[in-house]
Design a protein around this nucleic acid. Sequence first.
DNA 1: CGAACGGTTGAGGCGCATCAACGGACGTGG
DNA 2: CCACGTCCGTTGATGCGCCTCAACCGTTCG
Lengths: 189, 189
Amino acid sequence: MRVNREEEIYGEGERAEYVFKVVSGAVRTCTIDMEGRRQIEGFYLPGDIFGFETDACHRFSAEAMSDAEVVALPRATLERAAADDKATAHALWVLAASELRHTREHMLVLGKKGAAERVVAFLLQMAARAKTDVLHLPMSRTDIADYLGLTIETVSRSFTRLERDRAIALDGARQVIFKDKGRLQALAA
Amino acid sequence: MRVNREEEIYGEGERAEYVFKVVSGAVRTCTIDMEGRRQIEGFYLPGDIFGFETDACHRFSAEAMSDAEVVALPRATLERAAADDKATAHALWVLAASELRHTREHMLVLGKKGAAERVVAFLLQMAARAKTDVLHLPMSRTDIADYLGLTIETVSRSFTRLERDRAIALDGARQVIFKDKGRLQALAA
DNA sequence: CGAACGGTTGAGGCGCATCAACGGACGTGG
DNA sequence: CCACGTCCGTTGATGCGCCTCAACCGTTCG
């Protein structure tokens, strides 16, 4: 299944009939509250699974941040397989566990008071996935801001300050080179 | 098992060998980050289950907010039961689902910008448990502040303002009477 | 009675949101 | 090819909201 940039994969409130896996590209899940503010729940890269819900309906919508390929697995099939096969059931369990872990970590990040702390936490989170010191960000500043509960201006200023302090280097807006992870860890607080 | 007020039930990082259920009293789970700031993950009232982890170790510590009785169930027993019995496995699944749901809602609350919005969200959360319009808060202002990522002063001021606006009434610091839930819903934004 | 604790209220400062302007990258059409 | 628009990101100026520090009050306990 192919989706274009900014295209919606599923909407908030729709019945959760499929679980998705990212093959290429990048996906975000988010929700809009009544004042129109957007909270991004997570970013999904190739290999990641999203749309996995414990309820009948999706609580977040999913959109492609770039042109992307995803595979859709019918939820009913999964549940049937889990009922028969212990290994599949265990895999589902592990998946739910990692969702919970991620959400809890995200909660802790949002509990942080300083903007710098949040941005650094985000960067370290992303760095943990890519093993290298050069990191390509598939998401816009707006996405990062809505993920961290900040504004694009504050995110941007945090990046420039980190660069000035020689903790990172920027090659364009979306290429981050880690220069001093130790300092970042310290700033994460 | 009986625990006294402010007594620790288990600590962050300890091996998660038991799952607990509140019989009487109230319990909080929380974590301390490196700057010494405390983030409360959740409040647990009679009937609630806590200490249920997907990992081997507890990621939060648990403390009694009042004198309390809890029952401890060995995790190994639960897992054995779940392997044999479909119904138990399903119950565990539902439990994990509700943890995830709660954490996600908490995340959304922490994503809110205004202090009033957060406090109202907290109050409505608590009100949803007690069916009545009179609510006894088992936790201190400090606990509420650390749950919402605010300071005790800001929480206190928010309460006072809500009372002045006739949305709630206060009978002492820990007794809240809901006067105008409609207005609260509106403020939740 | 004094000390300790929890909660409320007040005064002031800092940090982030807001509003605004600018610059570069990209695409389109003349 | 260049003029034009749009989008994204950065930077600057300003204001408001929450944190901080501080004083005060009521309750509980030694």
